[in-house]
Each structure stands twice: as structure tokens, then as C-alpha cells.
Design a protein around this nucleic acid. Structure first.
Length: 927
RNA sequence: GCCUGGGUGGCGGAAUUGGUAGACGCGCAGGACUUAAAAUCCUGUGGUCAUUACGACCGUGCGGGUUCGAUUCCCGCCCUAGGUACCA
């Protein structure tokens, strides 16, 4: 029998599916293990060879855990709501549900070919009403919750209302939008409408006028993580700031817990670092600067309270509401002009154009609370409305932005910090500010002479004692904008009564996505759902017309897999208590500031409500690297249809053109295939070298336009899924990005055939029942040991090497012992499930190999009788000496010194020292 | 600018606590089998010099340092990928 992967793979994939080998149920007899892949968005392009990388790794790990006796949950589903399907719907009129369904079918077909151990009975799709029922449900829960800072968790809004009724809000410690205090009497006297309006300031899901990222091209608002460099992440369209009434999630309430939780999870440092920066905690002081001849008090946030004696002006963000109050009549015209000019500049321009200094004086003066000095209040767009209080105290001597501003407008600069080893100097001569975080204070009243650190501490204390402000921690993390003016997403379980939002009854869920005639905004500018007929709750109250964003459906899907068919709960407490949380999560690092933060927030919220048992969703996270494309080029003589082989291009003026990598082998172009590839090349002529056309190559992103996309189906057809799986792992370390080069795949294919041939001689299964030799056992057990360690370290590339070494050695030993080969295939089964299942059955086993047990290695087989000691002189290895492994350092030293080769190297020199590391090395130091 | 990875043959990469640098695979060269090809197997393959055998020297981005010994540890740079940025 030959290794016929096509037949074998088809047969076992069918068997595994028919017999539900990968279906999993709660089993208290076994420890559980939950392995999760980031579920894909099913795009129209299908999978390329880069996509399954993480899936293969997680598949190996979950199969390994299963062989180790764990009850493994390893599900898969689809993040199926999203913009591309909707954009396609706008162009073609095709319902996004239809294209999504088609794309899912194609994904499934491609995934099935690779032979994954998914429990498909647990599949979820975010666009399925049975699924988004629970997305809507969670939103309702957030709407009816507030964040109590006193208990540091989310609580039902009823507890807050009860407090209002009893004593107003003076003593309530909540994360909320800024508002004034009221008493119980006030509250009780408010109308229903007023009360609801007020509660929105506390709800974790709230509707408010906020500055949002509006993307006109997509016709929707976007969350901060969906905007990159002022452009939308999907499509790269410009994004502008706009004030709109939108739903938001009060994720900022969880900023500190999101930060603290990072210490308790096993994620890569880089992802933790990205999240830390995104949360952006800074400790500082909020200080009050009264304004002269006005009742306005400027509130500013600073991390450098020590520099308050160096403040020479104040700056407001152009969007600040204080601008209107502080602009003096004589400055009004200029201020208006400035505000207009700023508005016209897009966010992107503002960011790109950091160097240009602009601003305008308000005419008002603030009073420094520590020095009582009068300082001018300016307006400039280098101060952001969205961070801190939208106003700053400017310390031009020690902040580069303030310095530039001061120089541009001729404002005074006062030095207050002298870096260590330097002396105070004339700021008029400075070319730049001294942004020093260490040094000694000067010109600073009661903190003069202190170090920066001491000064910050003392100033903070002084401010608090004299009620000039308070110590405060600020976070960069903003609340997540949760509305999208799009069609293909979850409808909100919200209706409006007298203009105020209410949630539908939980028993009315799910609110189904209605049909519309077009997937475009209405003529009056309402979102697409405005086109739905009778889009009203109980035929009376209009529903919310926005839909939820992409991250809504992906924030709790890992819970749903635990209990996917439950129609009365997100997840039963029985299932949640058993599966708890994800033990191993695999996916791309590009989700660091989006999905991976939202999921943690969502999980913590459900935890606060007592719905789930863990407050972190993903214990261990591995980010697989990108698989890059390896592009090939041909070189066309400019203005001709003549193509020059790569080695000869220096003799011609040529143009580099991408060529389809599928018609190039080992960088040699298939000339006939090239002519057939495109009409324009049918008459192409070639200048060859050694009868071959050699192509150039480069590593680039894998993309259609570069003709370097390699399809996993094709690989499965040509080499088989087992070869593809092994080769993807063999390419290099899982977490690094590396180029795909189909050329190397032959190596692993040969390996599988060699393995097969250990079992089959001339097509006949010939296994020996004899006991294994010492060498054979050593080969086997060192492989088992290595594979176990490698899998546990996610070092799958070295596992594949180890298997190759093992098979090479067994081939040398002409080993066909059942005792050896049977254990070897169990060890290999997680990597190459089809061939190992086939061999396992062919040697007489009746149950699937995945109910076998991963072999234990036996240390005693690994012991060497003798060691080949490398003997080095001054650190350079010169020769090796075989010495009994039991020999101690002294004996080794004696043997080495007596050896004639040693004499050759020591001749004419004296031995200064001899180092013997038993079992490792001998080093002789010569003088 | 800041943060986090990475830099080793023609290529992908290995060397797990400092101990034989280049495992394994691709590619390349030569050979066996074959009418021939494919497949398979065997041998060689970091560089330079020397080839009469033995070899010698250099070599893990660059420059220093610690050490008997450094791809590995320390200091200072360079390049590169990703993240992030008027965040006060």
C-alpha cells in the first residue's frame, strides 16, 4: 500500500464527523481544558494559507491535551456581522445574510479539508438571532447597571435609585458623566422624564451627546480603536470629529481593573504593554485657577504639580465650553476667526501638522493659586478637548509644546527645574525646553531646593490642604461608542417614549433585524433601519435605528460556546462552573486595543452581576505571527514584450512585474504557463540564462494584487492536509511573522512518506512483534520527551524537526518494531491526524487514535554509556573524546591530559588551568 | 519621539539554566538505480586561504566589556517589523 493521502484524509474526516469524535460534553470525571481560536469574519476572498496558522497550532494543542486525558472544548464559529457584506449588499442589492451564508459555507469547506478537531455542534454565528439574543440581553443589563466606586463593581440601577429616593446623590460614589448634586426632595419632585434623563448619566450603556468619530464615507460613527491615523480602519476613509447623540458603553469605569487584571493573565508583554498604553493611566493633580474679574474657575490636570511656579500662561482647547465665557468682547472677532479655521482642519491634518503653532488670546487672565500672579488665557488646538479637562497650565520652560507656543507668541518662559549637574540659565537663550523628570527646583517658593519627586509630593499635599484642587488619576481610555448607522449588525433592544430610551422586556428578545428595501440611509438621513416598515415596539414606540458595532458580537462569544443551544440563558451556571474561562486563546495581535479590551470589559461586567465565575476571559493568550507572501517578478524590457531572466537584467533597461507564484517553481518561470496566464503575454519572448527563465522575488504582504496568494485547498489537494499542517508549523516560530514559500513543502511530504515506509515494505504492512533495541528505545523516548516539551512551549517548528530526526534514525536502524512505531504515531497524531489514524487502524486498533494516551517518556532509556566530550583549548573546540559517562571530573581530566592529541595542542605552551564540566565540555587554558 | 519584538549560511530556521554555532528542511553540486525520466537512496554543502595529507584563519548587525569559555550576560550604537503619540 502506498501513502495515498487523498483517500486517507477523506475517509477519516468523514469518520470523525459521522461518529462525532470531537463532540464534547461536561464530564466531571475529567479535568477540563478550553482552547479557543479567534473566530473569523467570513470574507468573500476565502482563506489563504496564512489564516489557518493559528488554527493548526490550537488544534495540535487541543489534540495533545485530549491525549493527555483532558476533556477539551475546542469550538469554532463566525463573526458574521460586518461592513464588507453590507458594502457588497449596497452595490448588488443582495441581502448580506445571503452572501454571509455563502462565505461561511466556503470557509467551512476550506476548514474541513485541513482536518480540525472542532466540535461543530457548538458553532455560533453572531448574525444568528439565537446568538444575538444574548448580545442584546447583555446590552439591556448594561443599561440597567451603574458603576459603584464604593464597592468597585457594577450594580443594578435600582440600588442607585433607592439611594436617590432616600438621600439624593451627594454621597453616591459613581462613575458618571459630570453633573450637579441633588437631594432626595429634588429627586422625588423630578418628573419621570427628568429622572430618566438623569439616570442616563449613570448607566453603563448610555445615550449622550458626545464628540464622536464620524466617517462620512461609511455613513457611521466609529469607536476609537476603529480609527487609525484619522482614517477608518476598514476602507481607509477620512474621519471627522462631530458632536452627536450616540450610545456609549462606560468602559472607562473599568479602567483600573482592566489595568490591574493584566498582572494576573499570561499574555505576551507586548500586548499587555499596548493595553497599558491604551488605558493610559497617569497620576497627577487637578488644580483650580480662578479667572480675574469672573466667577469662572479653570480646572486643569497636571502630572507635574511641581512646575506650577513656572506657569506663564493657560491654554484652552478650542472645543472647550469655557471659550465662550472667557473671551473678552475686544477679542471676540479674532477668537471666532480662529475657531472657524480650526474646525475646517480635519483631525488628520491636525495630527499631521504638529509643527505649525497656532492660537489666540482670549483677553482673560487667570490667577495662579500658588503665586497669585496673573497669567493670560489662550486658546490653541494643541490642547485636546477629550483628555483631562480640556485646559492646561502651560510651563514653557519644561514642556516642548508649551515652549514652542511661548516662543511663537512671545510669552515669558521661567525656569523652575535645573537638571542634575547643570546650573540655572537664561531661558531667552534656549533653543528648546528642558523636559526633565529629575532635577532640583528653583524660583519655586516653598518648594525651591527640593528634587522634582519631593516637589511633586509636597505640592500635591499643599494643594489638597489649601483646597486648591485635588490629587487625581486620569485615564486615556474613553468610553466606547456603541452605535453604528448601518444595517448589518445587531438591532438595539431599545425603543423611545417621549424621546427617552427604554429597554424592551427581556421576554421580547431577540429583536429581529428587519428587512429593508435598500441598505442605505433614508432620504431624511436616518440609518438604514429607518426604511423598515413599522419599526416600532408593540406597534407604537419607535425602535432605535442604529445597530451595534462589530465588537458587540465578539465580546462574549466564548461564554456562548459553553452552552450554545441554551435558549433561556447566555450560559447555564452548570456549564459556566465547569468550563469557567478560556485556558488558551489564539489569535492575531491586531485586536489588542479592540476585541481584547472589550471582551475583558464585558467579562468583568458579567462577573460583577454574578452571571459568570471568572473576571478575566482569556487566561493565556498566544498571538500567531503573520504569514507573509513571497512574490515573484519577471523583467520586461521597457516598451517591448521581451522578458529578461533575472541574471541578465543589468544588461537591459527593464521593468519589474509581479507574476503569479503558482506558475513559478523554485524561482524558475513556467514559460508556457506564463504565456497562457494573460492575453497580453501570449506572444511574449524570453531571454533565458542556461535555458531557464529565473524570476526575482521579495517578501511582501500576501495579497491578490501581488499574485502571491497561496490557497490552502490547493496545498491539501497537492500534498494533503497533514503535510500542510506540518509545513505551516515547520516554517518557523509560531509568534513571528515569516514568508510562505511553497518550495520547502516537499521536505515534510517526504518525511510523511518515510514514516509510512517504516510500516510498509513493498506495499505490505510488516511490523515486528520483537522487543525494541536500546538504540530504538532511545530514539523513541528522546522524541517523546522533546515533543512534550515543545508542545507545552508552543515550539511546534522544532517538534517537526524532532519527528524528522526520529524517522531518519529509525530508518537507519531499519526499525519496524510495533512497540516503537505505535507509540511514535500517537505522539505525532496531534500534528498529522489523518496518516496517524490510518496507520493506527491498519496495525489493528479498533478505536480512534484520539482516545489513546500520549506516551510517557522513560528517562532511563535516554542515558548514554559514554559521552563525546568536546575538548577545547582557550575556548576553541579542537577534537572530541569518547569517555565513559560515569567518569568524574578528575578522571576526565586525566584521560584528556594523557591523550596524544592533547599533547599536540599543548606543545610549547604551559597549561594554566583545566575546566571540566562533567557531561558537557573540557576546556584547557594555555599560556 | 516613546514602547515591544527581531537581526545567525543562497533561503526558512536550530542551539530550553553561558559549554561542540549552523540541528532539521529547502536549494545547489556529485553519485547509485533506470533505455530515459520521475520517484527513491547515498555523499558533499558558512566564508577565505591552502589543497600533499594533516589543515589554518575568520565568522551569529556594529563597537566595547565581564568570563576558562558569549548567538546567550552587561554598556554604547546601527538597521528592521509592529504598536503608539500634541495625553499635559
Amino acid at each position: 500500500m502506498e501513502y495515498n493521502f487523498k483517500e486517507i484524509e477523506k475517509k477519516w474526516q468523514q469518520y470523525w464527523a459521522d461518529n462525532k469524535i470531537y463532540a464534547v460534553e461536561i464530564n466531571h470525571q475529567k479535568p477540563k481544558y478550553y482552547v479557543l481560536d479567534m473566530f473569523p469574519y467570513p470574507s468573500g476572498a476565502g482563506l489563504h494559507v496564512g489564516h489557518p496558522l493559528g488554527y493548526i497550532a490550537s488544534d495540535i494543542y487541543s489534540r495533545y491535551k485530549r491525549l493527555k486525558g483532558f476533556n477539551v472544548l475546542h469550538p469554532m464559529g463566525y463573526d458574521a456581522f460586518g461592513l464588507p457584506a453590507e458594502q457588497y449588499a449596497i452595490q448588488t442589492g443582495q441581502h448580506p445574510a445571503v452572501t454571509t451564508e455563502e462565505n461561511i459555507a466556503r470557509y467551512r469547506q476550506q476548514l474541513d479539508k485541513i482536518g480540525f478537531a472542532y466540535d461543530w455542534d457548538r458553532e455560533v454565528r453572531t448574525c444568528d438571532a439565537h446568538y444575538y439574543h444574548w448580545t442584546q440581553w447583555a446590552f439591556i443589563k448594561m443599561f440597567h447597571s451603574w458603576y459603584n466606586k464604593a464597592t468597585d463593581k457594577a450594580e443594578p440601577i435600582e440600588t442607585l435609585i433607592a439611594t436617590f429616593v432616600r438621600e439624593g446623590n451627594a454621597n453616591v460614589k459613581a462613575v458618571c458623566s459630570q453633573l450637579t448634586t441633588f437631594t432626595a426632595n429634588h429627586w422625588n419632585a423630578y418628573s419621570e422624564k427628568e429622572q430618566q434623563q438623569l439616570l442616563l448619566n449613570y448607566r453603563l450603556a448610555y445615550l449622550a451627546d458626545t464628540m464622536v468619530n464620524w466617517c462620512p464615507a461609511l455613513g457611521t460613527v466609529l469607536a476609537n480603536d476603529e480609527v487609525k491615523d484619522g482614517l477608518s480602519e476598514r476602507g481607509g476613509h477620512p474621519v471627522v470629529q462631530k458632536e452627536m447623540k450616540q450610545w456609549s458603553l462606560r468602559i472607562s469605569a473599568y479602567a483600573q481593573r482592566l489595568l490591574d487584571g493584566l498582572d494576573r493573565i499570561d499574555w505576551s508583554e507586548s500586548i499587555k504593554e499596548i493595553q497599558k498604553n491604551w488605558i493610559g493611566r497617569s497620576e497627577g493633580a487637578e488644580m483650580l485657577f480662578p479667572v480675574k474679574d469672573s466667577d469662572v474657575v479653570l480646572e486643569i490636570f497636571t502630572t507635574r504639580a511641581d512646575t506650577v511656579f513656572g506657569v506663564t500662561f493657560m491654554v484652552l482647547a478650542p472645543e472647550s465650553e469655557l471659550v465662550a465665557k472667557l473671551t473678552k468682547p475686544e477679542m471676540q472677532a479674532q477668537v471666532n476667526e480662529y475657531l472657524e479655521a480650526t474646525k475646517l482642519r480635519s483631525e488628520r491634518e491636525r495630527m499631521a501638522d504638529v509643527k505649525t503653532v497656532s492660537g489666540v488670546f482670549t483677553g482673560s487672565y487667570a490667577i495662579n493659586p500658588l503665586t497669585s500672579e496673573q497669567i493670560p488665557v489662550w486658546i490653541s488646538d494643541y490642547v485636546l478637548a477629550g483628555y483631562g479637562t480640556g485646559a492646561i497650565m502651560a510651563v514653557p520652560a519644561h514642556d516642548s509644546r508649551d515652549f514652542k507656543f511661548a516662543r511663537h507668541f512671545g510669552l515669558p518662559i521661567t525656569q523652575v527645574v535645573v537638571p542634575e549637574g547643570e546650573t540655572e540659565s537664561d531661558t531667552a537663550l534656549w533653543n528648546e525646553s528642558i523636559d526633565s523628570k529629575t532635577g532640583t527646583m528653583v524660583n519655586s517658593g516653598f518648594i525651591t531646593g527640593l528634587t522634582v519627586i519631593e516637589a511633586i509630593k509636597k505640592t500635591k499635599t499643599y494643594i489638597e490642604q489649601n483646597k486648591l484642587g485635588k490629587v487625581k488619576v486620569n485615564y486615556r481610555l474613553r468610553d466606547a461608542i456603541f452605535s453604528r448607522q448601518r444595517y448589518w449588525g445587531e438591532p438595539f433592544p431599545i425603543f423611545y417614549k417621549e424621546g427617552l430610551p427604554y429597554t424592551v422586556a427581556e421576554t421580547d428578545l431577540p429583536i429581529l433585524l428587519p428587512d429593508v428595501d435598500k441598505y442605505l440611509p433614508t432620504e431624511t438621513g436616518e440609518p438604514p433601519l429607518g426604511r423598515a416598515t413599522n419599526w416600532k415596539y408593540k406597534d407604537t414606540y419607535p425602535y432605535e435605528m442604529s445597530t451595534m458595532p462589530g465588537f458587540a458580537g465578539s465580546s462574549a462569544y466564548y461564554f456562548r460556546y459553553m452552552d450554545p443551544k441554551n435558549s433561556s440563558e447566555l450560559v447555564s451556571s452548570e456549564a459556566n462552573k465547569y468550563w469557567k474561562s478560556v485556558d488558551l486563546y489564539l489569535g492575531g495581535s491586531e485586536h489588542a486595543t479592540g476585541h481584547l479590551i472589550y471582551s475583558r470589559f464585558w467579562c468583568k461586567f458579567l462577573f460583577d452581576l454574578g452571571i459568570v465565575t471568572e473576571d478575566e476571559p482569556f487566561k493565556k493568550l498566544i498571538n500567531q505571527g503573520m504569514i507573509q507572501g513571497r512574490s515573484n517578478f519577471v523583467y520586461r524590457k521597457v516598451g517591448t514584450n521581451v522578458f529578461v531572466s533575472k541574471g541578465l537584467i543589468s544588461q537591459h533597461e527593464v521593468q519589474e512585474i509581479h507574476v503569479d507564484v503558482n506558475i513559478v517553481k523554485n524561482d524558475e518561470l513556467d514559460v508556457e504557463a506564463f504565456k497562457a496566464w494573460r492575453q497580453e503575454y501570449a506572444q511574449a519572448e524570453f531571454i533565458l540564462e542556461n535555458g531557464k527563465y529565473i524570476c526575482g522575488w521579495a517578501v511582501e504582504k500576501m495579497s491578490k494584487s501581488k499574485y502571491n496568494v497561496v490557497n490552502p485547498d490547493l496545498m491539501c489537494d497537492q500534498y494533503g492536509a497533514d503535510t500542510l499542517r506540518l509545513y505551516e508549523m515547520f516554517l518557523g516560530p509560531l509568534e513571528l511573522s515569516k514568508p510562505w514559500d511553497t518550495n520547502g513543502i516537499d521536505g515534510v511530504y517526504k518525511f510523511l512518506r518515510k514514516l509510512w515506509n517504516l510500516f510498509y515494505k513493498d506495499g505490505v504492512l510488516t511490523l515486528s512483534p520483537e522487543a525494541a533495541t536500546k538504540d530504538e528505545l532511545k530514539t523513541l523516548h528522546k522524541t517523546i520527551k522533546k515533543i512534550k516539551e515543545d508542545i507545552e512551549n508552543f515550539s511546534f517548528n522544532t517538534s517537526v524537526s524532532a519527528f524528522m530526526i526520529c524517522v531518519n534514525e529509525l530508518q537507519q536502524q531499519k526499525c519496524n518494531k510495533r512497540a516503537v512505531l505505535e507509540q511514535l504515531i500517537v505522539t505525532l497524531a496531534p500534528f498529522a491526524p489523518h496518516i496517524t489514524e490510518e496507520l493506527w487502524r491498519n496495525i489493528g486498533n479498533t478505536d480512534t487514535i484520539f482516545n489513546a494516551t500520549f506516551p510517557e517518556f522513560n528517562e532511563s532509556y535516554l542515558k548514554e554509556d559514554s559521552i563525546h566530550y568536546p575538548v577545547s583549548f582557550n575556548g576553541k573546540m579542537r577534537f572530541k573524546l569518547e569517555i565513559d559517562s560515569a567518569a568524574d571530573a578528575k578522571t576526565v581530566e586525566k584521560i584528556v591530559l594523557e591523550n596524544e592529541q592533547t599533547g599536540k595542542w599543548t606543545e610549547g605552551k604551559s597549561i594554566a588551568k583545566i575546566i571540566v564540566v562533567p557531561g558537557k565540555i573540557v576546556n584547557i587554558v594555555l599560556k
